[in-house]
Amino acid sequence: MSRTRQLIDALRDQMGGSAPLPPPPPLPRVAEPPARVYPRRAEEKSAYAREASAHTTALLGIGHVGTRYATDVVLQFQAELAVAHEAVGQELPDDWAGKSGLISLQSRVQSHREFLLRPDLGRRLSDDSLGVLRTAVRRGVDVQPILADGLSAVACMQSGLELLAEFTKACEARGLSVGTPMCAKFARVWLEDEIGYEVQAKVAAILLGERPGLGTGDGLSAYLVYAPAIGKTDGDRNMMSNIHARGTVPKVAGDRLAVLSKAMIDQRTSGVALDLSHLTAELGEAAGRHHRAPQERVRLVEVQS
């Protein structure tokens, strides 16, 4: 009932209002929430939505209630977004590299906040790290692997060491010499150019946590460049993404990255110019420039509805 009417009714009684007031109009019945959600369950997806979602990990055919998303979709989205936020917010502990038996390097970035705001500083080594690099590591190697935190320290700590070990093993099996294992903190992809140049490696390979997406906070990417030097562009790089338990597993990724390194050294180039057409057997879909096979979306978190 109207609050103002209650107040005025009381005032009227107090001022000696005589005849009773007409009763207030009855309140309307509140409409029921929409009974139907479209589609009600995943299996009710239209044939078109099912077909389309088989070709992508994007969210397709998730239905709607009126003009809005269904509640379970929103909750799932928020849960997956939280995983991504948390992964971006994580910082690699200073002593993690040392404990893991890696040479510890750091870019020119001083703090985690600066790392997120200044990509340019994340692409250059700090003076201390340059000193370490010039004295304590093997030089003139074929392949210099660099583990790094990138945008997901979680991924780096979770499967970084395994990928590094698999990659090193696979390179050595192909007769390539591998540089001293190292780990860079606050690193962006282009940091491999300076490191690779300093150690005079033929191929620099940075393995770093990739920008977390919905529900994938634990993915690693690898970027390889031949004849690393400051000034190399992304056109000079080959990369592999989605290296995690639900995507390309570290064992397979390590093998493929070694094949890529070998091809770079054989052809003395990398990036767009690199010809991988004869390597489809070893590299699988990574060699082709064609449509990638449908990948099923596996959720990292699952909200119970």
Binding site: R5, I8, D9, L11, R12, M15, G17, S18, A19, L21, P22, P24, P25
Partner: peptide, 8 residues
């Protein structure tokens, strides 16, 4: 009758 509502 004072303070009677005058519905719009």
């Amino acid at each position: 009758m004072i303070l009677e509502p005058l519905p719009p």
